[in-house]
Write a protein that binds this DNA or RNA. Structure first.
Length: 227
DNA sequence: AAGCAGACCAACCGCAACATC
DNA sequence: AGATGTTGCGGTTGGTCTGCT
């Protein structure tokens, strides 16, 4: 029988105090991340290792951006969600300084609603019938995105199948494709059309290769982000 | 000003994948 | 190869905040 991840009766739960935060920061700065299971004891924290990891990743990490999402980030989340479904860590990985939890929360509290308002089904990113047409990006500001693959669901990673239904329904298109085999066109090219900004291009390349690698894709629908 | 409802977000839980023995 | 341990992920919960009546 496996031991629980922590001795639950001896651990604190709930909100973190400043002192706990400081202990965690100090410890990680001195010893680095990892070894979460033994970290709490070593750092003098009455917390479960999982809890420490989460606190560090979602809140204490120095490279976190925090604050409101900009329009570009919103659009990128929407587009990536269309491709990846609820794979928040992958999506967050393309948003420097953002965490999966943050992206997930933002999606659930803002973006979902926004898409629904625009007449788009947030689960499959398709226009809903008998719904008002999206006010083509008026709501989302100045960014326009075009996914060249007609069915943006093309990229559904293997994991979503037989994954106990945990991974998003956002990529479940079997109803549109009775044989259950969508016409997979799995690569993604993100082109950010924006005034000269060399780092954007670098970032684009990085995005492209990372996502292509992740999804094992072959050919490439192009996602154009006009900023 | 008080009460209520909805929104937001930090944190927890359970599970799966991966690593190690 | 199988058992066990660790880490990471996504779904969900619950406390707090905010706006409305």
């Amino acid at each position: 029988m496996r031991k629980p991840c922590c001795d639950k009766q001896d651990t604190n739960k709930g909100a973190w105090s400043k002192q706990e935060d400081q202990k965690l920061i100090d410890y990680i700065q001195a010893n680095g991340e990892g070894r979460w299971r033994t970290l709490p004891q070593a750092a003098g924290l009455l917390r479960c290792g999982k809890s420490c990891r989460l606190r560090w990743i979602n809140y204490l990490r120095p490279d976190l951006k925090r604050g409101n999402f900009c329009e570009d980030e919103e659009d990128l989340i929407i587009k990536l969600h269309a491709l990846l479904g609820n794979r928040w860590s992958l999506i967050a990985g393309r948003l420097p300084g953002r965490t999966d939890n943050e992206v997930k929360n933002y999606w659930n509290s803002h973006l979902r609603r926004k898409l629904i308002k625009m007449g788009i089904d947030p689960n499959n990113h398709k226009l809903r019938n008998n719904r008002p047409r999206p006010q083509n990006h008026g709501a989302s500001g100045s960014t326009t995105a075009i996914l060249s693959s007609p069915e943006s669901h093309a990229c559904q990673p293997e994991k979503s199948q037989g994954d106990n239904g945990q991974v998003s329904d956002a990529g479940s298109y079997s109803e549109e494709n009775p044989n259950g085999l969508p016409d997979l066109n799995l690569d993604l090219t993100i082109t950010i059309v924006s005034p000269s900004n060399s780092t954007v291009e670098e970032e684009r390349k990085e995005n492209q290769s990372a996502i292509s690698t992740e999804l094992g894709c072959a050919s490439s629908p192009t996602l154009l982000l006009f900023t």
